[in-house]
Amino acid sequence: MAASREDVKFLSNPKLGLRGKKYCRFRKFGIKYIDYKDSDFLIQFINEQGKLLPRRITGNSLKYQRRVATAVKRARHLAILPFVADLMK
């Protein structure tokens, strides 16, 4: 009698290894310009407190991470994005 998958207990989460490799979305989809007025787009690159997310998490290449950073800073200056926030998302 073969044990069904529900009976087997794993030491670690079996879905951990299934996640695909991170990639730079700007390089993959050919986005050349990051609009600093588009708050809905920029919100993907900041955390709940309004801080910039690291490259480690977003997977951006260095070139586009720098551009994202300038875009977010411009948006903050124009009060499109907050400098500090609580529970933004």
């Binding site: 050349k32 310009y33 200056h77 124009l78 009060a79």
Partner: peptide, 20 residues
């Protein structure tokens, strides 16, 4: 005015605005 910002657009920025 409360705030202002002047930005120089590169060729991709011009294209982006045009497409928009």
């Amino acid at each position: 005015l409360l705030r202002f910002l002047t930005v120089k657009l590169d060729k991709y920025g011009i294209k982006y605005n045009d497409d928009k």
